[in-house]
Design a protein around this nucleic acid. Structure first.
Length: 574
DNA sequence: TGCGGAACCC
DNA sequence: GGGTTCCGCA
């Protein structure tokens, strides 16, 4: 069933600067008649093509005045355009794609992988260890086509079967430099995950285990709205189908055990940081994912293996990871392990299609991209089974220049705009003939990124002023990448991995909602290049904070204030 | 085949 | 901390 084009319009947007990474919160109000059940979002990052799905559960879609509203949260690195697809469930086989061009084509800084943030796949990120963890390894095998005969997804909701236990053990032994590894030992290690709720044994099925993705999600995004997340609810299958999420409360200890890099996962250091003043409530905190230094104990990954995507060299970054891509998990690059296969076009049964697909990004990034060849070109991975076929894709002109092109009506999003400006700059338009279409434009200019004067040209802005009162969308962009000090040493990608960073010990990342301070910060263009290792580092929101912003300066805001002072001082000196 | 305790290693 | 190894038990 072809869904007619649905025009969406921005209702409100806000953005703030916090480094490299952005958090984008989209609030979309859809006409009820047009989109009764939004199920899937698909994003494609430019240099990597990272489709991942966010789902919108019906219960999560608030029907307001005959419209369905849903706030979509996802984090994305700046300088990435992405495609999102809305797909209707049921008989409505609609989908649509639109692009969001955040920044100029600078290196893609964030590559969400699989269900977990990339750092989760990094051996260095293994809690308490700098080696790859077994569950990472299992995921690695699962995502490689050549190991389908050894281990493969089977069943649903993260269930997989070890078809060849000895071979899996052998591979694991190779990876860990344990030549005497066998399945008995491997299974013991797997049982080690039971208590951690990472894995679960499927009783009655030989060699069959099940990932508790919801737990992994929990530990990464503890404040994710479990009750309203269809994915997490689906993960209850993991726990015997209980009506509740897995879900004994996740203790701080457990979270720290799994993800020690969460300063204190159980005490509010969450991606969804409530109480930050965002009207929407939670806020995705990308600064939870630091990129760590390399350090595979056994092997060193050749550079060719580091980049899972067929990237444009300019966009390449060694730490990029997508477990669905070749070598994505071969972080230790065990010599005896064959190189990663080509990007698998499909996985069956891919539990993520039905479960992780319903997660807000980055969880939804578990979904396999359907078309690896489009990594560089940022095409839609239509092969993704979660998406109803190849969706039309709006091509947004690359920065700098107009975000609007063709039928697309793009808008500049960000806190750098006043309410009036935002009304002018944000415009979301559906795709003709493509079902519900949402085109999102994110202008750096509106965010205060001064290089080039912003993404959207004035003419574009004018073109994007049209609004549809019948629908709204809301974007919130947060730059959080200042948090990762490790990444500062990465010359290629300037990549800092997002990480939760509100707790002590780590570099403090300003909260997402810092737009209110942005106006006082110097714009990038006004700063010497050396000041900011990354253009977005100087991204400065221009607009006042959202009304819900706390009036008092939080520690993070203080940091922003300090940053502002520093930048101002540098500017003065220069 | 699966489990978990225990000791041990890194 | 995250396994690894060994073991007894079911």
């Amino acid at each position: 069933m072809q869904i007619r084009t649905q025009r969406l319009s921005r209702r409100e947007s806000a953005a703030s600067r916090q480094g490299h990474a952005y958090i984008v919160v989209i609030l979309v109000t859809l006409s009820a008649s047009a989109l009764p059940d939004v199920r899937c979002l698909r994003f494609v990052l430019p240099a990597t093509e990272l489709p991942f799905c966010n789902s919108i559960e019906a219960t999560e879609v608030h029907q307001v005045s005959g419209r369905f509203r849903k706030r979509l949260r996802f984090g994305l690195r700046p300088a990435v355009s992405f495609t999102e697809e809305f797909r209707c469930s049921g008989s409505m086989d609609c989908n649509c794609v639109s692009d969001l061009l955040l920044t100029p084509p600078v290196p893609a800084l964030w590559t969400p992988g699989f269900a977990f943030p990339d750092w989760a796949y990094k051996p260095e990120s293994s809690p308490g260890s700098r080696q790859i963890q077994l569950w990472h390894f299992i995921l690695e095998l699962l995502q490689k086509e050549e190991y389908q005969g050894v281990i493969a997804w089977q069943g649903d909701y993260g269930e997989f079967v070890i078809k060849d236990p000895d071979e899996v053990a052998r591979l694991w032994g190779i990876r860990k430099c344990k030549p005497h590894m066998n399945y008995d030992k491997l299974s013991r290690a797997l049982r080690y995950y039971y208590n951690k709720r990472i894995l679960h044994k499927t009783k009655g099925k030989r060699f069959t285990y099940k990932f508790n993705f919801s737990k992994v999600v929990l530990v990464n995004y503890p404040l994710l709205d479990m009750a309203s997340s269809p994915f997490l609810l689906a993960q209850n299958h993991f726990n015997g189908g209980a009506a509740t999420t897995d879900c004994s409360p996740v203790t701080s200890e457990a979270l720290q055990s799994l993800f020690p890099r969460l300063p204190d996962s159980g005490r509010g250091t969450t991606l969804f940081d409530r109480g930050t003043g965002a009207p929407e409530g939670d806020k995705l905190r990308l600064d939870t994912f630091p990129f760590l230094g390399s350090g595979a104990p056994c092997y060193s990954k050749p550079p060719s293996m580091l980049g899972p995507y067929p990237r444009n060299p300019a966009f390449d970054y060694s730490w990029g990871f997508n477990p669905y891509l070749p070598g994505a998990l071969s972080l230790n690059n065990c010599p005896k392990l064959p190189p990663g296969s080509l990007y698998p076009s499909h996985f069956y049964p891919n539990p993520l299609q039905s479960s992780l697909a319903q997660l807000p990004h980055p969880f939804s990034s578990l979904l396999p991209p359907g078309d690896t060849a489009g990594a560089e070109r940022g095409q839609t991975g239509g092969a993704n089974g979660s998406v109803g076929g190849q969706a039309p894709r709006l091509c947004i002109p690359s920065y700098p220049g107009s975000l609007l092109q063709g039928r697309t009506e793009m808008g500049i999003l960000g806190s750098g705009m006043g309410e009036r400006e935002r009304g002018e700059n944000i415009n979301i338009t559906g795709l003709a003939g493509g079902g519900i279409g949402v085109g999102l434009g994110l202008g750096l200019g509106s965010l205060g990124l001064a290089s080039g004067g912003g993404v959207q040209s004035p003419s574009d802005r004018r073109a994007g002023m049209k609004q549809d009162p019948g629908s709204d969308s809301e974007l919130e962009i947060t730059d959080l990448s200042d948090c990762s000090s490790e990444n500062e040493n990465e010359p290629d990608f300037h990549a800092s991995q997002e990480k939760e960073n509100r707790m002590g010990g780590r570099p403090h990342i300003p909260e997402a909602k810092t737009a209110g301070l942005g106006g006082t910060l110097p714009q990038l263009s006004s700063l010497p290049p050396s000041i900011s290792p990354h253009p977005l580092k100087s991204l400065v929101p221009l607009t006042p904070p959202p009304p819900s912003l706390p009036t008092s300066l939080s520690p993070s805001l203080i940091l922003v204030e300090r940053h502002r002072e520093t930048e101002t001082l540098k500017l003065t000196h220069s």
